[in-house]
Write a protein that binds this DNA or RNA. Structure first.
Length: 158
DNA sequence: GCCAACGTTGGC
DNA sequence: GCCAACGTTGGC
């Protein structure tokens, strides 16, 4: 892969539902990141996230909230099966197999952080002032991370 | 549990 | 196309 096509991301999850540890223990340390029902997030998963991209896994509604580790995209966007399943809590009747409304990517856990890099500590780090996660009211569950932001956080994680 | 901020829906 | 009402997110 050409270096300038490498991208970085952050994905949120509630660890009471699915944590970084759950991903670490999953078969092949891999899961399909299903159930995302936001168009901006959908567009990024469908169009922009490619195998080899790296992803911070962020724990929301947790104690503490923060980044738990790093995952890698191992499969780019493809239709979210859970949207087609009437019995699934993420079922969406407007998503059709011949015209899917929602997409997933597959991610594989590659590195747990020794300690959660907490939201509180992120807010104190120089250079993250413009990070999407830290903007007031930001609730995008899939978001891009700049290479600079990635490096700052990765270094702080040790 | 509270509630501000946000995205989506639907009446008009 | 506007926008009020509603449901959800997510920090605290």
């Amino acid at each position: 892969m050409a270096p300038d096509t490498k991208r970085y991301w952050l994905m949120k999850t509630e660890p009471s539902t699915f944590s970084f540890d759950d991903l670490w223990r999953a078969p092949k340390r891999t899961t399909s990141w299903d159930g995302v029902r936001n168009y901006q997030a959908r567009n990024m998963m469908r169009d922009d996230m490619k195998p080899g991209d790296l992803v911070f896994i962020y724990h929301s509604s947790a104690d503490p909230t923060g980044i738990a580790g790093i995952a890698e995209v191992v499969r780019g966007g493809y239709p979210d099966e859970s949207a087609f399943d009437e019995k699934d809590s993420h079922y969406d009747p407007k998503s059709k197999r011949d015209n899917p409304a929602w997409y997933v990517v597959d991610v594989k856990a590659v590195k747990p952080f020794k300690e959660i890099v907490t939201l509180e500590s992120l807010r104190k780090m120089k250079g993250l002032e413009k990070m999407t996660l830290l903007q007031k009211g930001s609730r995008l569950s899939v978001q891009p991370v700049t290479p600079d932001e990635w490096a700052i956080i990765n270094k702080a994680a040790g």
